[in-house]
């Protein structure tokens, strides 16, 4: 009785048609001279350039550096945020005392730290890490705080009255309840971390994909700029898919999936 269902197979077909349409458009527009090829190379040229670049070791090294910056920064931010978030969440009064500080620090755009990173570390992995960690830390922390706050107060009191120690409470009550939130935070943080990793490379010149784009641009290699941007998009999609997969894996067998039902 709802709207006519749109089958998964047809959706896939339409989606492929959409992608094909985009490629055809990017192929036709410069070929027909609507836009100068110097500014927008045809799709085939872009893809050929990408294929050629992918055959070089340099690109893979750059990609690896970007991903190392991303993963390392994300991991540091994640563990830091989870630890701090849980402590803030369970120590009475700490939540209230930190609210103003968190609300002030969180909206600070992470790129504001670019000059500081440049000054302290120059074009290096450390600069990337500084930006990535700062940006993704807040995404996780906020979700952890939501998660800890979602712990049923009755369950909490029960756990206390049965004499569960702090560590047991964290392990058996707070962590399971907060886990879905934590995973949401991780998913949001992963996307932000990737953006900031590339940004750091682009602006500060830390080695990686962003720096490659910067070099290609300043040497006027337009097809390479496009090819690298396409690659960045593909990696971005990969990052999203990987984190979503991880989220589903972690939550599928975990009892916390049903936490909404118990509160």
């Amino acid at each position: 009785m709802s709207r006519t269902p749109f089958g998964a197979r047809r959706r896939l077909l339409y989606g492929l048609a959409g992608l094909a349409g985009l490629l055809a458009l990017v192929e036709a527009v410069p070929r027909l001279g609507l836009v100068d090829e110097r500014y927008l190379p045809p799709a085939t040229t872009i893809l050929a350039t990408l294929a050629r670049e992918l055959a070089t070791a340099g690109l893979w090294i750059a990609l690896g550096e970007t991903l190392i910056g991303w993963a390392l920064g994300l991991a540091i931010a994640f563990f830091l945020a989870v630890a701090i978030g849980v402590v803030i969440g369970i120590v009475p009064g700490l939540r209230a005392a930190t609210t103003s500080t968190i609300e002030f620090l969180r909206p600070i755009p992470s790129v504001a730290l670019v000059p500081l990173a440049t000054l302290l570390y120059g074009p290096s992995l450390s600069s990337t890490l500084l930006l990535v960690v700062y940006a993704s830390f807040w995404q996780v922390l906020i979700q952890v705080l939501y998660g800890v706050a979602a712990v049923d107060s009755v369950a909490y009191d029960t756990a206390r009255s049965y004499g569960l120690g702090s560590w047991s409470r964290v392990r058996h009550l707070i962590w399971p309840t907060a886990l879905p939130y934590v995973m949401t935070g991780l998913r949001l943080a992963a996307a932000v971390a990737f953006i900031l990793a590339v940004t750091a490379e682009l602006v500060i010149g830390s080695p990686g994909l962003g720096a490659e784009i910067q070099v290609a641009q300043s040497s006027g290699a337009v097809p390479a700029v496009y090819a690298l941007i396409v690659l960045a998009g593909l990696v971005g999609i990969g990052v999203n898919v990987a984190v979503r997969f991880l989220e589903r894996r972690v939550l599928s067998w975990h009892p916390s999936v049903r936490s909404e039902a118990t509160t």
């Binding site: 953006i195 682009l202 602006v203 784009i213 910067q214 700029v225 593909l234 999203n240």
Partner: peptide
């Protein structure tokens, strides 16, 4: 796909 592109890379382009 367009959303997955980190926006800052559009600056040089």
């Amino acid at each position: 796909f367009f959303r997955a592109i980190p926006p800052p890379v559009l600056v040089p382009l």
